[in-house]
Simulated scan of single mutants.
Amino acid sequence: MSFDVNVRERILRPVDEVFDAVVDPAKLSEYFISSASGPIEEGRRITWSFDDVGTKVEIDVISVKTGKEIVYESSALGHKLRTTITFEPDGADATVVTIKDSSFEMTEDGVKRALGQNAGWTYTLCGLKAYVQFGINLRSGLNKRLTDV
């Protein structure tokens, strides 16, 4: 038996603006990653760097439907995980973004990984919203330790 993780957020910006903030590596680095080897494009393998935790993640982009959906796979959690990001207009000036990770085994380890993904995607969508709506980078200062203050 397996289950999926689903996280969603309504962002007060048009779909094209929100979609662009997800596929453009310069914009993506304002709220999610430290850097990327390239933009999200169908058929590409992209490396995302997360300098704050000292790791890199490779994603294989399965499909991109401009303004509608991005699907990619990654093995960052130790098993193949498929992530689907959908963008739905909610009126002319708002977008509902849904992120779905498929799938997690109904085991103690699977539930632990799913809870981590849920927390991570919730933080990411909050960061996306802060960046796109208000120009705020919530990742600022993540590399600074409390002892450095």
Score class of each variant (00 low, 15 high):
Ser74Cys: 10
Glu88Tyr: 00
Phe50His: 14
Gln117Thr: 13
Ser63Leu: 09
Arg145Cys: 00
Ser49Trp: 11
Ala114Met: 00
Gln133Asn: 03
Glu88Phe: 01
Asp90Arg: 06
Pro89Asp: 06
Gly141Leu: 00
Pro89Cys: 10
Asn118Cys: 07
Glu58Asp: 15
Asn143Ile: 08
Phe87Val: 01
Pro89Glu: 06
Phe3Asp: 00
Asp24Phe: 04
Val15Phe: 00
Thr47Lys: 04
Gly110Ala: 05
Asn137Trp: 00
Leu146Trp: 08
Ile99Gln: 10
Met106Tyr: 12
Tyr131Asn: 07
Glu73Lys: 12
Asn143Leu: 14
Thr147Lys: 11
Glu108Asp: 15
Phe19Ile: 09
Ile33Gln: 04
Gly91Ala: 02
Lys27Trp: 09
Ile40Gln: 04
Val15Glu: 00
Thr47His: 05
Ser37Asp: 02
Lys65Met: 10
Asp101Ile: 06
Leu28Asn: 12
Ser29Ile: 08
Lys56Pro: 07
Ala26His: 09
Thr66Asn: 12
Met106Lys: 14
Tyr72Leu: 09
Arg145His: 10
Arg10Cys: 10
Ser102Asp: 04
Ile136Ala: 04
Ala94Lys: 00
Asp109His: 12
Glu41Tyr: 08
Phe134Val: 04
Asn6Thr: 14
Val64Met: 10
Leu28Trp: 08
Ser102Lys: 07
Pro39Arg: 12
Pro25Tyr: 08
Ile40Trp: 06
Ser49His: 14
Ala119Tyr: 10
Val53Lys: 12
Lys129Ile: 02
Val96Gln: 00
Val5Leu: 04
Arg8Val: 07
Ser140Asn: 10
Ile40Ser: 07
Glu30Ile: 09
Cys126His: 13
Asp24Trp: 07
Ile59Thr: 12
Ile70Thr: 03
Val149Asn: 06
Ala92Phe: 06
Val18Pro: 01
Val111Pro: 02
Leu12Met: 12
Leu28Arg: 08
Asn118Phe: 12
Glu105His: 11
Lys80Gln: 14
Thr98Trp: 02
Thr122Met: 10
Gly141Pro: 00
Ser49Ala: 14
